[in-house]
Design a protein around this nucleic acid. Structure first.
Lengths: 266, 266
DNA sequence: CCCGTATGTATCGTATTGCGATACTTTAGA
DNA sequence: TCTAAAGTATCGCAATACGATACATACGGG
């Protein structure tokens, strides 16, 4: 929010277009003009022009019956290009694959993305829900073991602040809503070197988050392991899975973030 | 190309930005200003502005050392939103998963995207290359079994035209360069109801492409199965894999394309 | 080590271009 | 059939993005 206007070389039309595109991500995947006006607050005429442009460029599919739009598969190209250029994914992928063979559990790479956790690599084990296999899914960082694991490396000041201000979701009856409790859990994760959560996002699911630290000790990503409460207890998971996961996470080399970092505060 | 300008409600800045973004996809995943100017032909000042905007929106990561940019993981959000809204992927995924359990072979969903094939769902079997696990990868349609399978449903006129004009790559010594031969292979696929290719994209690989037809009989997508020549012969694959794959592909319901279709001819 | 070139950054006046108001057309539901 | 809501088209204005140019910084060879 803060530093939008300082650079006078910002293209307004492009900013708006991105805002509009993001609207498709936030739960509403199929949208018409008026809905977009409501969601984004952009003028109808502008929405009209942006949609026309994106559509004519093949980036949007239009349902001629309902006159509503959805994102085309051309966007997968951007995702692909991201992965190719991303030093972390290419490094983590093969190790994650081996780990999955060894442990037989669902594994993800989770990255911090503003105040959310995004699953960027996914290796499911059995037939899960379709959504469960897709990369790009996000959850509020505070709700997830991965998010707490990452925050636990940022130092008490920053994680306290995050625990108090970052958004929270409500997924199951057992999703922790108590921000003080969350701060405690992060502190615990700081001591342990990893975070465990129980049924906070999905019922019957234990989440294990292991931070992937840069040389400076801060993490922007985590290995996330998801196991079922019907086959595992928390203690079993701690004893059998955590050590292996910690071993793996330690071996990654993550360069320091010289870039914006933008700290996602306020 | 043809119908760019007829609509006067096209936003120039946005079109340019998309062109610039696409440059990251085409093999060059990390780019500086000057390189982008070369690749896209856009004025340096414009490139500068677009990059500044995208960067400040968090869509690009900048390496402060080399001053070059790459796509951030925010784009995965767009990919995610695409999948959520796409009726085909969500339909195919579970069936593909079952198939993979049954056959134990690498399976993909391949979709036509202009003159290319894009792998939009991937279920690899063993530790393959990183790229081999990523969705959004494209190859010239003419080079792949999936592309030929799809074209074989479009009728002789259109597939002849495609065979003569669509781009061709050269991946292995055995990649067919003869456009006449490719037209023949498509015709063969039309008779058989599927396409098989041998070592045209990857050495030691047999590709099997099964069209997923809409009620009208035309396909925009294909199931693609990749098997190793060290364990299989072409005849074995035809006998053991193809029937099962055909059975599966037949059961999908793909709505007709009322949308642009844009036929990628010109 | 210094210089020359190539690349990235900042500035600025102008006319182009995207803006938003409004009027028109189509759809869907009562 | 009518009405309200959603989508589409038009148009004049001025704000905005444009591109030329000048300035700064990085890189690499002699």
């Amino acid at each position: 929010m803060a530093e939008q206007e300082r650079n006078s070389l910002m293209i307004n039309a492009l900013s708006k277009s991105l805002a509009l595109l993001r609207a498709f991500g936030d739960g509403h995947a199929v949208l018409g003009i008026t809905e977009l006006v409501r969601l984004t607050g952009i003028e109808k005429s502008s929405v009209q022009r942006i949609l026309a442009t994106l559509h004519s460029e093949g980036m949007l599919i239009r349902d001629n019956k309902t006159r509503r739009y959805r994102l085309s598969n051309k966007w997968l190209h951007m995702a692909y290009a991201h992965y190719i250029a991303d030093p972390l994914s290419s490094q983590v992928m093969p190790r994650l694959f081996d780990l999955q063979q060894q442990l037989g559990q669902a594994l993800n790479l989770a990255e911090i993305c503003d105040t959310s956790i995004m699953y960027t690599l996914r290796l499911p084990v059995k037939r899960t829900s379709f959504e469960g296999t897709l990369t790009g899914r996000t959850h509020p960082a505070l709700n997830t073991s991965g998010g707490r694991a990452i925050l636990s490396t940022w130092g008490p000041t920053r994680w306290q602040h995050a625990a108090q201000t970052w958004p929270l979701g409500q997924y199951t009856p057992r999703t922790t809503q108590d921000r003080g409790r969350i701060a405690e859990l992060i502190a615990k994760a700081h001591e342990d070197g990893y975070a465990i959560s129980e049924q906070e996002v999905l019922l019957n699911e234990i989440g294990i988050g292991i931070p992937i630290k840069s040389p400076g000790g801060e993490a922007r990503a985590a290995i996330h392991c998801s196991v079922s409460l019907s086959s595992w207890t928390i203690d079993q998971a701690r004893a059998e899975l955590v050590p292996v996961l910690l071993d793996t996470a330690r071996t990654f080399f993550v360069p320091e973030y010289e870039d914006i970092d933008e700290s996602a505060v306020e």
